[in-house]
Amino acid sequence: MDGTPLVELQHINVAFGGVHAVQNVTVDLRPGEVVGLVGGNGAGKTTLIRCLSGAHPADSGQILIDGKPVSIANPRDAKALGIETIYQTLALAENIDASANVFLGRELTSRFGDLDDAAMESATRQVMGRLNPNFKNFKTAVVSLSGGQRQAIAIGRAVHFNARILIMDEPTAALGPAETAQVRDLIKQLKSEGIGIFLISHDIHDVFDLADRISVMLHGRLVGTVNKADVTTDEVLAMIIMGKMPQEVTQHDLAELHG
């Protein structure tokens, strides 16, 4: 793996009042790569990634895209750079329908600036046909859809707009086994298209199945980044729980982990 990384987050700091949610964290992502971002609750994964998606700008630090420094002050900036985000909360307006959500903030319009609902519905039908062929409720408000269907809409929104960089925050948390498998296939497919993916997940097996590298965070700091091929799940668990890199872990630690 060489060449310029697609994304570099360098020395990122975010504080809420006196709480340092993210401290001096540096991670990167290459084209066609999946980087798993793992850590316990409150480790700062989501906060870190919100800097990249424009939801909450960093207090300090630098973001580079294709090696060039960029400024991401809001979600529009991020989207203009080809960064799409699937939030853990899904960020759907539940009172409007699927295509209105997919195109929220980026509506297709006619020459006179009127919303082109038919064109948006058509594009949504295409993207949903790929993600969830059973999805049929294009005219109903999202509020009456199932968790899996909502997830599909949130993913469809990210996928439709030619993302170069995809951030997935717990994309399978609300899904059943069949839908989870679909999402895994999708991630593999997007990866093969050269898209870089940050995958945040609680599920260590998900991460091991999909990620090329794994960055571990604990208490707002980066414990380290490892190649998946070089580590075992136990070693990653030790990083998550104890904040120790694989070479620092002792037999005693491992015993405690399983104790």
Binding site: A55, N74, P75, R76, T85, A91, A93, N95, L104, G105
Partner: peptide
Amino acid sequence: NPDAALLGG
């Protein structure tokens, strides 16, 4: 969903 509107840019 005010949050979704904001995150939608």
